[in-house]
Design a protein around this nucleic acid. Structure first.
Lengths: 205, 205, 205, 205
DNA sequence: AATGAATGAGCCTTCATTCAT
DNA sequence: GATGAATGAAGGCTCATTCAT
């Protein structure tokens, strides 16, 4: 049983680094210390292996740290939202263990059927929790549509530091790295809390 | 001269649909009605063709509309920032004809050397203009680092509606489409302008 | 294991007939009854296959007979030198089976990196033995430089009957063939022994 | 008419350096400052160009220095033979102008129909002269067959320093170069004169 | 349960040649 | 007389997959 797991682990890294097409069965098997035919033997297909890799990666993704929820401190929504954003940014930038981020980015650029499972299984709960937190911070001042917009833009602000990494490195010589996770999180949190202020823009003047 | 353009156009679509590795020279040439050797003759390389496709796509993306700049109305920075964001979101979501978005997403997920040229040549000026606009709106109230953070998060909020498209479709049944460009742009603009307010968060309470 | 040998054998003939550039992997594999990918699998490269072919051919050339050495009869250097020359000429002209001669001639006319290996691995020991024989016949009467000159010219006299074959056929209607190996060897030997005589040319008159 | 000559000249060098198969029409035309189609326009074929190149090369080959003949000094055959050998070695090693030697070596390793013309037109007269010189030195002491053997081995000794160049460089660190032409020629001459001595080998002891 | 050998499809590229101008 | 654009055939190589063991 060790061989199968070894291949899964090796494939995760290879696919993350080179993509589905770029990663070769030979490299995966070499890295796993297995035979070239092992992939076809254990997973029938390169595609099937890839699907299992995505599942495996997502299952092991949240292993590191528990997601902060509103339920943890129902009376301190702003603090919890800040904690959530910080947690999310850290998760994106510190890709120490499993390279979920890269796999995810590739999957978004070139969706396969594996994305469906991921959406429902792994992303949905995280996104729902963000919805609850934002709603609590806004205190009911946002309708459903604006609430969703707000959640998406928060996620977008976090994601850009990961998915736009390659471009940022080429754009801003003193670009942001994983060391700046806290600064980034504070910036996004501040913007998010202000945006939840139901007061219309004009009346603030 | 038509053959070269035909190949460029065909390659743009093929690369957008299948990626650099997945797209084959044969398919490109077939689509362009040219010989397999034509790519080599006109572009020397598959890689070089890809690089030119990226440049071509990015340049022709905003071909319809000129980018709003601060210089167009120096005394109305907020209006110009709003215009810029609207322009940028529209550009991302209305990919009529040229599939810039997919090309860029793929390139970011799996950078090739073509990204270097693109960053310096085409992206930098757009990003710089955003910096000028945000600085003007903030009225000097932001230091350099916070200015950059703000620019990146604005771009991130726009991008997520495009790059996260595949996920949003699977997450929110009434998801946002290109028809909602204006609503999205308004939301992002509002947040951006509030974030430029130099008043500390606490004092507003 | 048969496939690998089959390919080696087929490649030897194809390369001998068409040269390294002219011989195609496809033709080799067809001749060996193997798949096109077999070359890559067993030899990694067309070049590597070529290198192995050269070694294989040179090694199997003298397979029938062992090279005569001075050590075989230390007190009869002239007889051993004669034997060596006879052996060498026969080896060149009787290319039964392995076409070493053509391979070598091509390689010399258009050296590849395979020549380096060949020189150090296979040719050096043969040439060194000739040096020992000539030195013994000369009885110490030749300095190092003249010794080397003598060895090279002996080899040259043998080689010309093979490498110049194509020209000799066109020059001398009753040209020399492999049947004349013994006569040729005797002629060269006689010249070589006279040349080893340390007496200056003039004093013999 | 300049273009045609330019191509001929360029092709001569390219073919000498890379061989017939290795040299590309494109490189030749580039070097000649002509269009890619020029070769086919002026010579119809790559093969036809090659044939004309060989002819051209041989015609210009002896341009440098006149061949020493017996007729120049009928009473000093040894001196003339020495001069002839020296002339021949120099011609082989000093490939300053036209690279005839390399073209010839390639042609020998892989004969085309062009070799027939060369044999009769350029090589035959040179070889015949050598025959006359050797016969004169031997003073009638050699039968026809031994005479021919002797001529061939003389040529072989000269040739090996050119055709075996690549191997000699890899075999003897202080190998012989074109600077050593005179030393080489003296060595070969000495051997040749001794070999012409009709006295049987045994009687010299 | 697992493997080393072997396969066939397909890819990028090169090259001599042709053709309209 | 000469050329730039375009072609088609072929070549080396890679890769996922299969098969006998």
């Amino acid at each position: 049983m060790s061989t199968k797991t070894d291949i899964l682990e090796a494939a995760m890294h290879v696919f993350a680094e080179r993509g589905f097409r770029g990663g070769t069965v030979r490299e995966i098997c070499e890295r796993a210390g297995a035979n070239v035919a092992a992939v076809n033997y254990h997973f029938h297909d390169k595609s099937s292996l890839y699907a299992e890799v995505l599942q495996h990666a997502y299952r092991n993704a949240g292993a590191g740290e528990a997601m902060p929820t509103l339920a943890d401190a129902p009376d301190q929504p702003e603090k919890q939202l800040a904690a959530w954003i910080h947690w999310y940014v850290r998760r994106l930038l510190h890709s120490d263990g499993t390279p979920v981020g890269r796999l995810m980015a590739r999957e978004l650029a070139d969706p396969t059927e594996a994305l469906d499972h991921l959406a429902r299984g792994a992303v949905q709960p995280v996104f729902s929790e963000l919805g609850r937190l934002v709603a609590a911070v806004a205190g009911g001042g946002l309708d459903d549509r604006r609430l969703k917009l707000q959640c998406i833009t928060i996620v977008g602000q976090c994601l850009v530091f990961h998915s736009g990494r390659a471009m940022l490195q080429r754009l801003e010589p003193p670009h942001f790295t994983s060391d700046d996770a806290e600064e980034i999180a504070r910036h996004i949190t501040a913007g998010a809390i202000r945006a939840c202020d139901p007061t219309p823009l004009e009346s603030r003047r």
